[in-house]
Design a binder for these strands. Structure first.
Lengths: 336, 336
DNA sequence: CTGAAAGCGCTAACAG
DNA sequence: CTGTTAGCGCTTTCAG
């Protein structure tokens, strides 16, 4: 690493290296003429400040740790894109880690990021147990959870109103005439999933329809899981006219299973998802779903984190954004 | 930041802080009994080594910068997932930046990462001009390009054999009886795209068929671009029996345009892509394509980078992996 | 306005 | 085997 340092510049400019530092940091206590000269010499010599050394003395790195369960999940990669761009605008870089849906790994990378002295952490947690396994950590470094509700927990989070979103989804199907709606993919290890299920159950109760649920006992919502659950369901005759999925990824798996069985969507079966990942908009998929405003989530989370970095002892905060129905062509009206 | 430092531990343990450092670094020159005692005290006090301070003296950060054009592109997010997991196994963390298909931004984030003293950089460049705009930088920090061919350029890269891959794709269509094959999405700003086009042209020449090309004058290959190009093409009568796309994302856009026009795939038109992104496997898409071995690309790139970090002055290297045909159901055999 | 010097937390000689 | 010490490159008092 033979790079140019402040000292080198100082030597050439014939000033002390404190002066060079001041010239670059835009300090007011320096003569305009020296500043200009020093800045020019810095450029000529190709000097770039060493962020590591700066972090050392400033006691902040301007790095945000981002922990996601899996970066190649479309919802998360979209969130990451928004986060990275906004974070950079705010003067921060992102250090990204996959927890791979594993609580131990999640803890490990969290601790790793702490050792790297990131100024804060934004994370999509593995599930509701994450709070428990991470609480000694989240008490030590500003942390914001994103996309996941941490209700009644001493954590900061930004998410959508999942219950209301799923209730609206259910009622949309109801309004189309559906009375037998299967809810597919409820996961036990996630408060968010619990809330979505609640939304569905509320709507059922309100309209006097019988709930019917297929649970997802795995820790993740993937195409494969959606496919497997639907495939099993389709093996026996079923009476539901619509399937409401806990996530778009699951719904896309359902499409696959339906396709193999010759079940046409929406002709034979209506289908809805949740999240509105970009692929759901593609015509061969064309999935009616509930949108999570990803950019707003990202911006809110970053702003919230910045606030906490400034005031680490402020009380915990949450931001709940509104989801919205996105009507495409995977549902049809039916007559009784 | 009131965290525990080596000094604090040393004080409690009643030893010098060099001893603590040695106990933790697994140095052989330390008594087993002191080591155990010190390690225990570290744990009790919740001590975590400060990577920033360590980087300062070690002159390496164990951070790899990853620059991609857009992390929410499925090909790139899959690559990123593999890279992050493997890098972590090698003791590195990833700092991820989007260049947003912009040469200036690409340069900016590259320089930013250099200021952060990353040990190396892996990047999917904006295009073939990237070498020119970045060459003063890539000379200063170990850099490996991934997915993009930098032929005859003094750079390190790992990619697939794009020409052969596309030639095989073309010949596959030929073997199905296609003689009028449209190549859609050739991009001028990318060597990789140039090679893919070459592969197509070679096959055409070899089999005496007339090439027909729709260029993509934008800087990226997205659903939207594929859709727009195909839509325009479909507006007039056309004679091609197959479309070969420069990327899967383009092909998915073509599916959309075809769908809107009532053109059935593969009944009315055969379609192929390149990359084999995960979505191409979904039955509603079910795209025949050419696979890029993403995990192998990621691992090779990381290994290559590690080598360069060790021997920065070694001659530039390249690794070319083999693409492979993935036959699904978007192409059909036709009779003359 | 500018220089000198301390120190961020750690590693790595160098002594003992 | 263990302690002492000198930096890594930078910011920031504190003097001048």
């Amino acid at each position: 690493m033979g790079f140019v340092t402040l000292k080198d510049v100082a030597k050439v400019a014939g000033v002390s290296y404190a002066t060079v530092s001041r010239a670059l940091s835009g300090s007011p206590e320096i003569g305009e003429s020296t500043r200009k000269r020093v800045v020019r010499i810095c450029e000529e010599m190709g000097y770039t400040p060493n962020s590591v050394a700066r972090s050392m003395v400033m006691k902040r790195t301007n790095i945000i740790g981002l922990i996601v369960t899996s970066i190649d999940n479309p919802f998360m990669s979209e969130m990451t894109a928004h986060l990275e761009i906004y974070a950079r605008q705010c003067g921060y870089n992102l250090m990204v880690c996959n927890s791979s849906y594993n609580l131990d790994l999640e803890k490990e990378v969290f601790s790793l990021l702490m050792g790297r002295k990131v100024d804060g952490i934004i994370m999509i947690p593995v599930g509701s147990e994450s709070h428990e396994t991470l609480k000694t950590f989240t008490a030590q470094v500003p942390t914001v959870f994103i996309g996941e509700n941490m209700i009644d927990l001493p954590e900061n989070y930004v998410s959508v109103d999942n219950a209301t979103g799923m209730q609206q989804a259910t009622e949309y199907l109801y309004s189309l005439g559906h009375r037998r709606i299967l809810y597919l993919g409820a996961r036990d290890n996630s408060m968010t999933h619990q809330l979505r299920l609640d939304g569905y159950l509320n709507a059922c109760k309100k309209h006097g329809i019988e709930p019917s649920i297929i649970r997802n006992t795995s820790a993740r919502s993937s195409f494969q899981i959606g496919y497997a659950l639907a495939k099993q369901h389709f093996e026996q005759p079923f009476s539901e006219t619509a399937i409401l999925c806990a996530a778009d990824t699951l719904a896309i798996g359902v499409i696959q299973a339906a396709y193999e069985k010759g079940i046409r969507i929406p002709d034979d079966l209506s289908l809805m998802g949740f999240d509105n990942i970009s692929f759901s908009a593609l015509p061969p998929i064309d999935l009616t779903t509930v949108n999570q405003p990803k950019q707003e989530l990202a911006v809110s989370a970053m702003d919230m984190l910045l606030n906490r970095i400034r005031k680490p002892d402020a009380p915990h905060t949450k931001t709940i954004l509104s989801p919205s129905l996105v009507i495409r062509n995977s549902c049809r009206a039916i007559e009784d």
